[in-house]
Amino acid sequence: MLDICLIGGSRYFGKRLIERLLTAGHRVTVLNRGSSVPPAGSAHVVADRDDEAALEAALGPLRFDVVIDQVCYTPRQAAIARRVFGPRTRRYIMTSTVEVYEHEDSPTPVREGAVDPRTVMVDLTLPWDDPGFRDAHYGEGKRQAEAVLAQDPVLPYASVRVAHVLGGDDDFTGRVAHYADRIRAGEPIAVPPVNHPATYVYVEEIADFLAWAAEQDFTGPVNAHSPGPLTTSDLCAAVERAIGGRAEFRVVDAGPLSPYAFTRAYAMDDSRARALGFTFRHTSAWLDQAVAETVGPGR
């Protein structure tokens, strides 16, 4: 049994993660600003993770075997987490993102070494507290957050670089729903001249992976995704199977594109996850189920 603290992330795959940790018999403490109540069986600490003094006070004497940080978006947040949780936990897991590879355009899936956080420059003077800036620099914020943990390590850490997540009737992104709405209305879906594939993961499996990772001892970055990159056409075909209709594509050279329509290669390599002992299913094993959960009849 482990004492595990989950920072934020109590919806979507975060809530699934909490359920898995509790089912496995772990003691779970959810730390958030109080905007959502965690599932029954977990403890609750209310604090603003950006307010270091308040966070210290709220945690008090609490100690943890593992901290899983679902909402670390900037190097400033990582620096606070490092200082506050360094003396309080044996291992820290940050949920990172495929967006750390936003400057890569590799014809082959990229491995973790393509972005080595030990060599990433950290700039704490940037306006990370500005939500607009933070959203516009999501990948950079995650890269620099990883770098804070890697370059001045005070505790063992792992960063889980999560692919684009699909599935669930609680998918709040609206991205797959965008396809369904346009197919139902007979409206075109904007795609680039070259429709590059990207890597994805099923919401249930990323919850499985994070719950599994909490019980392991590996450190450093790891890509988390299913083999079998998907294009916009692949996703729309799954939507067609779920709701009927036929997708119409409009090729555009400039201007807004549909969600998950990429102008560059966007695939990760999953060999490290497999070497560590976790195997994600191929996208073909779950794609139709995931899409139907989100946009199927009655959605």
Score class of each variant (00 low, 15 high):
213 A>Q: 07
228 G>F: 05
77 Q>K: 02
202 Y>N: 14
52 E>W: 04
73 Y>I: 06
99 E>N: 11
215 E>M: 14
274 R>M: 10
231 T>P: 03
288 D>K: 09
25 G>W: 05
83 R>C: 11
70 Q>R: 06
67 V>C: 09
136 A>L: 07
107 P>E: 11
241 R>A: 15
215 E>R: 12
149 L>I: 07
64 F>K: 01
268 M>Q: 06
128 W>P: 01
71 V>T: 11
124 L>V: 12
166 L>W: 01
178 H>N: 12
200 Y>L: 07
176 V>P: 00
63 R>A: 14
117 P>H: 00
278 F>M: 13
246 R>M: 14
37 V>G: 03
5 C>H: 02
91 R>A: 03
169 D>H: 12
182 R>S: 07
29 T>D: 09
184 R>F: 06
249 F>E: 13
53 A>W: 03
196 H>C: 12
181 D>E: 15
119 T>A: 15
125 T>Y: 06
60 G>K: 09
175 R>V: 01
73 Y>M: 08
258 S>W: 00
15 K>N: 10
119 T>E: 15
241 R>C: 10
29 T>K: 02
15 K>I: 11
187 E>W: 08
113 G>W: 12
249 F>R: 06
223 N>W: 03
196 H>L: 08
149 L>G: 03
122 V>W: 00
14 G>Y: 01
169 D>N: 12
69 D>I: 03
234 D>C: 07
247 A>V: 08
123 D>T: 09
132 G>D: 13
33 R>Q: 13
226 S>I: 12
172 F>L: 11
175 R>Q: 03
7 I>D: 04
192 P>V: 10
204 E>A: 13
18 I>Q: 09
112 E>G: 06
157 Y>N: 04
219 T>L: 03
247 A>L: 11
43 A>H: 14
51 D>E: 04
187 E>T: 14
139 G>P: 03
36 S>K: 04
108 T>H: 04
111 R>Q: 13
50 D>T: 10
298 G>N: 15
26 H>Y: 06
138 Y>M: 10
244 G>Q: 15
110 V>Q: 07
176 V>F: 00
279 T>K: 05
114 A>W: 05
83 R>N: 14
207 A>C: 06
59 L>P: 05
66 V>T: 10
286 W>C: 10
95 T>R: 01
167 G>W: 00
174 G>V: 13
240 E>Y: 12
46 V>L: 11
116 D>K: 04
206 I>W: 01
66 V>R: 00
203 V>F: 00
142 K>R: 13
206 I>R: 01
91 R>Y: 09
110 V>I: 14
96 S>E: 10
54 A>F: 01
267 A>Y: 01
120 V>E: 07
106 S>G: 14
